[in-house]
């Protein structure tokens, strides 16, 4: 636990530094635009699934602190700037909160579903979204989350949340969704 605290301390330091000059409420974190991403990991496939896939999207999250909107961990979608894989300062506490939970609950694990907006080429966007997923995963691992608890899945522009061809839609689609196994 000591190392976790040390990591968190460094982490918060990073946040404070990078948060300098930004206005607004890093503390409360952004509200989760997707209503807690309750749609979860709804694969909808008839083909072979990865292990544990059958429990995805079961939606049994009522009352679980992970989904408490007042908790930074209630935010499960991290948004990114165009062609960037840098986790914005406002999301650092969100990642930290999830990391803390994962460290405290080594039996839990997450899939980081990483996405891009539709602009540019499809395969480049797959790679770009993987970088986004890796950025989040690296932050979590930096806080002593075991690599076994974090998996990145990059979908590029293939699974948009919003189908519009405008900045509003693109902003929704440039994201990493933190999805807990079995919840």
């Amino acid at each position: 636990m000591k190392s976790v605290k040390a990591a968190l301390f460094i982490f918060i330091g990073v946040f404070v530094l990078s948060g300098c000059g930004t206005t607004g409420s890093g503390e409360s974190g952004p509200t989760d635009g997707e209503g807690g991403a309750g749609n979860g990991y709804d694969s909808g496939a008839s083909t072979t699934g990865i292990d544990g896939g059958e429990t995805y999207g079961a939606g049994a999250y009522a009352g679980n602190s992970v989904f408490d909107p007042a908790n930074p961990r209630g935010t499960r979608v991290i948004k990114f700037a165009f062609d960037s894989s840098e986790v914005a300062a406002e999301y650092l506490p969100v990642v930290a909160a999830h990391a803390e939970y994962l460290v405290a609950n080594p039996d839990k694990s997450v899939v980081l579903e990483a996405h891009a907006d539709e602009r540019g080429s499809r395969e480049y966007n797959i790679a770009l979204s993987e970088h986004r997923g890796n950025s989040v995963a690296d932050l979590m691992k930096f806080q002593s989350v075991s690599p076994n608890q974090v998996q990145v899945m990059s979908y590029g522009e293939e699974k948009p949340l919003s189908y519009g061809h405008d900045e509003l839609s693109w902003e929704q689609n440039r994201r990493v969704e933190i999805i807990y196994f079995g919840e």
């Binding site: 909808g44 496939a45 008839s46 083909t47 499809r122 395969e123 979908y155 699974k159």
Partner: peptide, 8 residues
């Protein structure tokens, strides 16, 4: 045919 993306 697939329920998941096919690409490239």
């Amino acid at each position: 045919t697939s329920a998941e993306p096919i690409m490239s």
